[in-house]
Design a protein around this nucleic acid. Structure first.
Lengths: 203, 203, 203, 203
DNA sequence: GATGAATGAGAATTCATTCAT
DNA sequence: AATGAATGAATTCTCATTCAT
């Protein structure tokens, strides 16, 4: 009872710090955000920060793991609503939702791109693979073979890095141009893995 | 001319600084290399640094542009020796050489991955596209369509990011596993862009 | 009585804290032991510390007084077993036992040397003089004259400081070399106090 | 020429810092003197401190080595003026001068006592022994045997620790009482080492 | 009495940048 | 052009102490 109240408070303070840090990371970049900035924004004392995090990297890692997970979960849920007919189609829907989300939150994309690896998410979520989380959430089984797990990883990396260069840098073209290009590329990548019929279905 | 001698000297000191900085960036990371470290290693005074570079980011950018270019040039030359039969095959050869070079120089890969974008190289080299430089060096024309320029860009991003996660982080598998996987994926990506014959030729 | 039970409990928690602190002081030095370290080791809350001690110096002083007293008591008891024939011989035996104990517990020596003075012990024990405690415990009377009280004090200081430099620093030689040297020096110091003639001669 | 001017300036700045630090160490103790205090008093920027010293301990060590040496040199010179007839008498004169100097500068005594060992001075001065420095300065040879070197060391420790407890703490009596007591004790210590004649000479 | 989350002053240290020589 | 001593703002991190529960 009592302890749960205290625990509640503690969780809140941690969230408070993470929220403040996220906002600053997005607005001025994680590099140029000092712990001083974070505690000032969170309205707590400097020492309090160190009660919850060992150093700036720790809060950064936690935020990225948290946000990435939320991102994938949201994308997977949205994808699911579209009732994909196959594993490939599911992944494709997830990719599309991710691109849209990155477009809406370019700051988050910038934060994630430079500081995360999809492997983090796996470890965090105890999943075999980042795309796997999406697929699991889609109610589908995890990728059936190491081969397709690798393909999912490659797809996720491709989406992230092209989204980054396209949305943030406008290279080699804007996201409006790159999105269909990316989707068709991924379709092609996944195609040969599936029997011709399924391939047709996706297209 | 006297002025050319002076220019020569200036260029030498600049190179000296860049060489020292590169070595340090590779061994201890660009983040934790101070200007003090650089000038000490180069054996020049602190003030001298500011005669040639505005700040640490400038020397970092210059080094990355320089090394990336060298990387692509070397890969393109090696690829050329293998006498590719088509544009696609040429790009594929370049990719293979790049992966090998990244494997030999993981430090350089780490430096480049976090701090460059292939767009930098384009601007620097006044080329439309990173792969374009490779292709130009191969004596082929620049990518014939915007479509294929985009594809080249996508391929380069894919190679860099998967090389990074594979070689540096071992995710989702070692480079020995990922290299063939990556090459076949890229082959598939490029395939549909070419007429069936060319496709055959590459395989 | 209830109050005595409470007192008992209080004393227990205090001892618990002192034991934890002693262990830490010996292993990492008093300077680098924080109150946090102490309470963590003792398994009590931070606030509890302040219920029993005003600050870190207070617990340090108490520990040193406590340990020094124990040291002298033990040395005196051991010395007593050897049935010294005179006050001088008694002191000499105490000295020898002290050196042996310091050799066995160099950590304690380090703690004591930098932070105590034999006067502390006197005040604590309400004795006129540190050696006095030894002598009293030996069942002998307190030093008979201020003169011999001073001599006892000088002897104790000499033993402590030479034990410290010899055992901890190895200067000017190891304790195996310095112990006999020290004992013979002290014998010489005490000698002349006894036979009237010699005493006169010196004065 | 030019470089010597710069060197001169550098030495001056270092001395400036050491002088400021010494004054603060004497007035508020080395423990509670921050680097901030030192640079403020010296009137230089904080970074300047780190140009000359690695940390607070380094400046403390340098100051103590410097002051101890000055102390011994001064004592030895004064002792020399009194034209000692023997090695023992020379050491005795040095001791007396040291006691007087400690009496005049109790702050310095406090600083030295807690933080130095006579061995430091030896190493610093490349002398075999602290007392040796005194004797060397007296124009006498270094202690002739390891035995007498040890005795000199013991004497120096004894003087320092008794001066400390007497002058700073008033234990077991004031320095006016302890000085003659200490001198006669030391005389007794040294006595038996010398042939009767020399003994006479000292008296 | 006991707890431990919260505090915030303060200490050490780094480092890009300037500028007199 | 070249030097390198000096700067001081900025940052990280520690820790004794308080106080509401």
């Amino acid at each position: 009872m009592i302890s749960s109240l205290v625990d509640e408070k503690k969780r809140k303070k941690k969230s408070l710090l993470m929220a403040a840090a996220l906002e600053l990371f997005l607005s001025k970049g994680s590099e140029s955000t000092s712990i001083d900035d974070i505690v000032r924004k969170a309205g707590v004392a400097k020492g309090t920060f160190y009660l919850y995090f060992h150093d700036r990297n720790e809060i950064l890692r936690e935020i990225i793991a948290d946000r990435s997970k939320a991102l994938v979960v949201a994308a997977a849920l949205s994808a699911n609503l579209r009732q994909p007919a196959s594993e490939s189609e599911g992944l494709l829907f997830v990719v599309e939702e991710l691109i849209d989300e990155f477009t809406r939150q370019p700051g988050l994309l910038g934060l994630i791109y430079r500081n995360m690896t999809w492997g983090m998410l796996d470890r965090e979520a105890r999943m075999e693979n980042p795309a796997a989380s999406a697929l699991q959430l889609l109610g589908k089984a995890s990728p059936t073979s190491p081969e397709s797990a690798r393909m999912a990883y490659v797809v996720m990396e491709l989406v992230t890095s092209i989204s980054y260069s396209s949305i943030i840098l406008g290279e080699p073209a804007g996201i409006d141009v790159m999105k269909p290009f990316l989707l068709s590329s991924i379709r092609r990548l996944l195609a040969s893995e599936e029997p011709p019929k399924a391939l047709e279905a996706i297209r």
